[in-house]
Simulated assay, not measured.
Amino acid sequence: MMLDGKIAVITGAGPGLGWTLAVLMAREGADVAVAARSADTLEAIAGAVRAEGREALPVPTDVSDPDQVRRLADTVVERFGRVDVLVNAAFPGSHRRNVLDMDDAYLEQWRKAVEIAAYGTLLACRHFAPHMVAAGAGSIVNLTSMSSRAGYAGRSDYAAGKAAVHLLSHCLADELGPSGVRVNCVAPGWIASDVLDDWMRARAEAEHTTFEAIRARDTAAMALRRIATEEDVARAVVFLASDQAAATTGATLDVNGGQLFT
């Protein structure tokens, strides 16, 4: 198993990718701590991890709060004695608004979104990385996005937050590498989901065409002619987290079906 005996932490563990990643890590041999704001979601994910025969630790956490993130790190290390893998995936939903259409309330929402992505990732790394440095080994994998390299109208909060995480990861890779700690990114493109389907249906209605036509047009722009799944993305994370990527740091692994080459 790729993560046999590892202790993994996932921040921003939601009902979609976070759930899939936690279960896959458990199947690959890891005990998993999951952190997010929703206690109910965390308990459900923890139950799925335990169903795979591994230990789970749900810790409700606001990753933009320094005290809560410090408590998260202390709780994980107290329970498991160490941390081998940290995956940062926290980011709030975006409502797709152009900059010139933002009122004061949305500008504050924009600030908070970027803070959760960039500052939240920084805080998690700040409080977990010292335990990895002390052990002389560890892997941090940050979830960025295709949008961290190519911005789109209405998604400036998402693009700015993910781009910040992208370059933060480069800085951390340089800082932590001498201590044996690796820092990498996985950058998904579109991920197959009900949310993506709803967006395609909305576009189809706006363009007076069909969902099938929009989906066919979108996938035709991808080299693999298919949209990545949550499991596709989770497997990329597991690879970078594992010892199979022992000589890889400061890298970004794109999982977008060939929608964007970098």
Rank of each mutant, 00 (worst) to 15 (best):
A206I: 04
E78P: 02
N256R: 06
Y106P: 00
A33N: 09
V59G: 04
V63F: 11
A221V: 02
F128H: 07
D4W: 12
R225L: 11
D197K: 14
V77Y: 03
A160H: 05
T252F: 05
T144K: 03
D84W: 14
A236L: 08
T219G: 02
A56W: 10
H208A: 13
K6M: 13
I191S: 01
G136W: 09
L143T: 04
A117E: 06
N184W: 04
G180L: 11
V9P: 07
L122A: 13
L42C: 08
G138Q: 07
A73S: 15
M200W: 08
A223C: 06
Q109W: 15
S38A: 05
P92V: 13
T252V: 09
S193E: 05
R71T: 14
G53Y: 15
R79L: 06
C125L: 07
V87N: 14
T219L: 09
T75E: 12
A216N: 00
E212S: 04
H170F: 01
K112H: 15
A192I: 01
A160D: 09
M200Y: 15
F211P: 05
I7F: 03
D31W: 10
R37A: 10
L172C: 10
S38P: 01
A137S: 10
A173L: 04
A234E: 01
G257S: 14
G12C: 01
G136S: 05
D243T: 08
A8S: 15
D194K: 12
R155M: 15
V32M: 11
A234P: 04
A246M: 11
R27D: 03
V63A: 02
R149S: 00
L107V: 06
V141G: 12
F128G: 00
G93W: 00
S156T: 14
L143S: 06
F211M: 01
G18T: 01
D198W: 12
T61M: 10
R126H: 13
E55S: 10
V181L: 11
A113S: 15
L107G: 09
S179D: 13
Q68M: 11
P130D: 08
E43Y: 03
A33R: 12
Y158S: 06
S193W: 04
A234Y: 08
V59H: 13
R126S: 05
D197G: 12
E108A: 15
D74Y: 07
F80Q: 02
P66F: 08
V76M: 05
F261V: 01
A246K: 14
A129E: 10
A30E: 07
V49N: 00
V181S: 09
I227M: 14
A51E: 15
V186M: 07
A39D: 11
S179Y: 10
V255D: 05
M2L: 15
S139D: 09
A36L: 00
D104L: 14
I140Q: 07
L72G: 05
A36Q: 00
L107T: 05
V49T: 03
A213G: 02
V133A: 13
L240V: 10
G257Q: 11
R70P: 03
I214P: 00
L172R: 02
D243Q: 12
V133P: 12
A30T: 10
P15Y: 02
W19Y: 06
A202F: 11
N142C: 13
G53A: 13
